[in-house]
Design a protein around this nucleic acid. Structure first.
Lengths: 225, 225
DNA sequence: TTATCAATACCCCACTCGGGGCATTTTTAA
DNA sequence: TTAAAAATGCCCCGAGTGGGGTATTGATAA
């Protein structure tokens, strides 16, 4: 079966070689390229056939000529099918958060045993999101903190008719389509429903929010009712 | 050395016994209690010496008499040092998100091999946040989605088609009526115009803003286009 | 002074919307 | 287990909307 193609982006030559050797020993992988900075990996990808693009990129964060986060963002935009796993010493929240925002699907600390790194790459390839345990704890805290922010925003706004709290998940979905300017017919197509179903949902939404027009629906969704 | 004290909250008696047996075999753990619902674990904790509180609770989500999420929230509030790991079949985003918000530090799917569950509990005890891989991918997406919202808020401030600078005074007046939900007929009455006049103004507004629907008109006026 | 723009008004046509109502199935919560 | 809620779907009817077009008058800018 075909080997998992990996590219390594790491400014330390020693680590580059070490990772490359480690992955090449394992018959599951093929290291297709080694790069020292963000610029060079992007230039290389831009010149490749789609065929030869790596499945996975191991990305350091601290590098010259475009750091790992900015590089991740650009690569994910251009080549969304490539999975990127950050491989770094950083544990601070902002680097973690910036990496995930940039589109990284894994975040592993460099000091993990190599076997763990290999297993992580396999998990990534299989659709998982390997994260070093201490990082995972921080990631959960990020979500927990953001929900605290959401709570405080709600308390602040004191918006008594915020659709978020009144409407069901499906209704919100439909409301968002309506806000974008969709007609019953076009919304039905987008969501694989009957136009009649869309219409009934919209009627229910209007009833729950005590409104009668699209304009009011849009304002309600945008918190301007 | 002292064993890791575990409590199991699971409404299926069969699974309760299975987990208890599995952990008791491993010399690292001591199962201190088995509960069938949220109420009973909370009542039990409330009666315990601090000494005997478990280090870790494995929490099912779907249970009678207080589900796992609400139970988690209450326990984390009362006993913040207890780590809670959700053990469930659910993979939908809302359950994951609610669990994390409630304070869970781990989220493992029940169909994982038992060895994985044991390793997960050890990682949890050591300060990690074990998450099944497919769940981890969703968790990262949750963070990614929230950053999309941040992006759109940023874009707000750079509105390139602000009606204030494109439309005439009269047109703005009419647009405001439209935003309020007025029909051609009602706007005409309010502004002492003919409905035909209102319609022509609206047509001109749509043309200037490059839009085609009321929803877009409202969003444009509210700076959300 | 003249051209352009804004404001006002009218008509045609096809399509969409909002409110009324009802029904069945699936999911969720108690 | 059961009731309630959510989701889906259908029909009728009157009112409303958006796009096409045209015309006249007053205000504004060059």
């Amino acid at each position: 079966m075909e080997k998992i193609k990996i590219a390594i982006v790491e400014d330390s030559k020693i680590l580059q070689e070490r990772f490359a050797e480690g992955f090449n020993i394992d018959k599951t992988f093929k290291v297709t390229g080694k790069y020292s900075n963000g610029e060079s990996i992007i230039n290389s990808l831009d010149k490749m056939n789609r065929y030869d693009l790596p499945d996975i990129i191991l990305m350091d964060i601290e590098m010259p000529k475009k750091n790992g986060i900015a590089t991740t963002a650009e690569i994910k935009e251009k080549y969304p099918d490539i999975d990127i796993m950050m491989l770094t010493v950083f544990e601070d929240d902002s680097k973690i958060f910036e990496s995930i925002k940039a589109g990284a699907s894994g975040y592993i600390l460099k000091d993990e045993p190599f076997e763990v790194i290999i297993d992580s790459v396999k998990e990534l390839y299989n659709g998982g999101a390997p994260i070093s345990q201490s990082i995972a704890r921080k990631v959960l805290a990020l979500i927990g903190n953001k929900s605290e922010m959401e709570k405080s925003k709600f308390a602040e706004s004191k918006n008594p008719v915020d659709p978020e709290f009144i409407l069901s998940k499906r209704e919100l979905e439909l409301l968002d389509e309506l806000v974008k300017g969709g007609s019953y017919t076009s919304i039905a197509k987008d969501l694989f429903l009957s136009p009649h179903t869309v219409k009934t949902h919209i009627k229910n939404i209007y009833k729950k929010l005590h409104i009668h027009t699209r304009a009011e629906a849009v304002r309600a969704r945008l918190g301007k009712l």
